[in-house]
């Protein structure tokens, strides 16, 4: 029983990270119809910026958010202008391959700069809560709380600000949005920039809880895809639920199936993905548009 509640707590904590990691992927897909296969690489880049700042300058890892967010915002804006804009209206194969090329470039550039050695980030908040027999690492609690704050902030932004409303309008009907005077190119660039910045912040959050290495991206991208397909494009509550489901499944398998460890996490997310896609292609939570329209 203790083992079960421990696993459940760990699963929810992991799910919090997945939820915040998946938001950027889900919104980019929902708003511009681009499936960003370099998504996991942006998580990795965020984690590396955090590692660099905390190792070289001695910053508190969680405080590096104030650097990671604006830097990656600028990177996202530039990338959208230079590259992603060129693939938005083209067949999905083009955008998949271009973002895959991007992921190869980012991962290998990171490997050349920082070598393939896994890195760990130390934080001042390394301790445990004890609730009964269940131990909860403080870092993971911070990650979960930060994830909830980010998601509510993003929800309020999309729901109530002018820019957030134009992003949703551009997602629902691009032509109509253009008619009422929304600058589509600008909205797309801002959306991409925000999403990339959020994704990198997810990297900052995960850096103190697990080792980071240049090729950590592709499994994260696949998990983001599985969660998004399950949750519906651009749906924030869906991302939270999907993230927690995936986190729970992963941790429960690692805890109760002997001898497999965490490696089968990707297998379980894949099985969930195929089952959901075949049985309920529109996703479980609705979202920006039906999942059938890529």
């Amino acid at each position: 029983m203790d083992q079960l509640s421990q696993a459940a707590i760990n699963g929810v904590m992991l799910g919090g990270f997945y939820a915040v990691m998946v938001l950027g992927f889900s919104i980019i897909w929902g708003v511009m119809g681009v499936i960003n296969l370099a998504h996991g690489e942006f998580v990795m880049v965020g984690a590396y910026i955090t590692w660099l700042l905390s190792k070289q300058l001695g910053w508190e890892p969680f405080a590096t958010v104030i650097v990671v967010f604006p830097v990656m915002f600028a990177v996202g804006y530039a990338l959208q202008h230079g590259l992603i804009n060129r693939v938005i209206d083209r067949p999905y194969l083009i955008s998949l391959l271009v973002t895959y090329g991007l992921s190869i470039i980012i991962a290998n550039a990171t490997k050349i700069i920082f070598t393939a050695t896994p890195r760990t980030v130390d934080t001042a908040f390394s301790g445990f809560w004890r609730v009964g027999d269940v131990t909860v690492p403080i870092t993971k609690t911070i990650v979960l709380i930060a994830a909830l704050i980010i998601m509510s902030g993003l929800h309020l932004f999309l729901q109530y600000t002018r820019l957030g409303k134009s992003i949703r309008a551009a997602a629902q009907n691009r032509e109509a949005a253009r008619i009422v005077g929304i600058e589509i190119k600008y909205v797309y660039a801002i959306t991409f920039a925000i999403c990339i910045a959020l994704t990198a912040v997810a990297g900052t959050l995960v850096a103190p809880t697990q080792p980071i290495y240049p090729f950590m991206g592709p499994p994260l991208t696949l998990k983001a895809f599985a969660i998004t397909a399950m949750a519906g494009l651009g749906s924030i509550p869906g991302a939270l639920m999907g993230g927690i489901v995936l986190g729970l499944v992963e941790v429960l398998i690692a805890t109760f199936v002997p001898g497999v460890g965490t490696n089968l996490g990707i297998v379980s997310s894949f099985v969930i993905l195929v089952v959901v896609l075949v049985t309920r292609p529109q996703g479980l939570f609705g979202g920006l548009k039906p999942a059938g329209a890529h």
């Binding site: 499936i35 999905y92 194969l93 998949l96 592709p218 499994p219 696949l222 895809f225 599985a226 397909a229 001898g259 497999v260 460890g261 490696n263 089968l264 990707i266 297998v267 997310s269 894949f270 099985v271 993905l273 195929v274 896609l277 292609p281 999942a291 059938g292 890529h294």
Partner: peptide, 22 residues
């Protein structure tokens, strides 16, 4: 359909690597 098939197959590929490892 479309990208769903592509990514599902990418998932199969990565999953099979882990299965072989296990």
């Amino acid at each position: 359909k479309g990208p769903y098939f592509s990514i599902a197959m990418l998932g199969t590929f990565v999953a099979m690597r882990e299965i072989v490892r296990v």
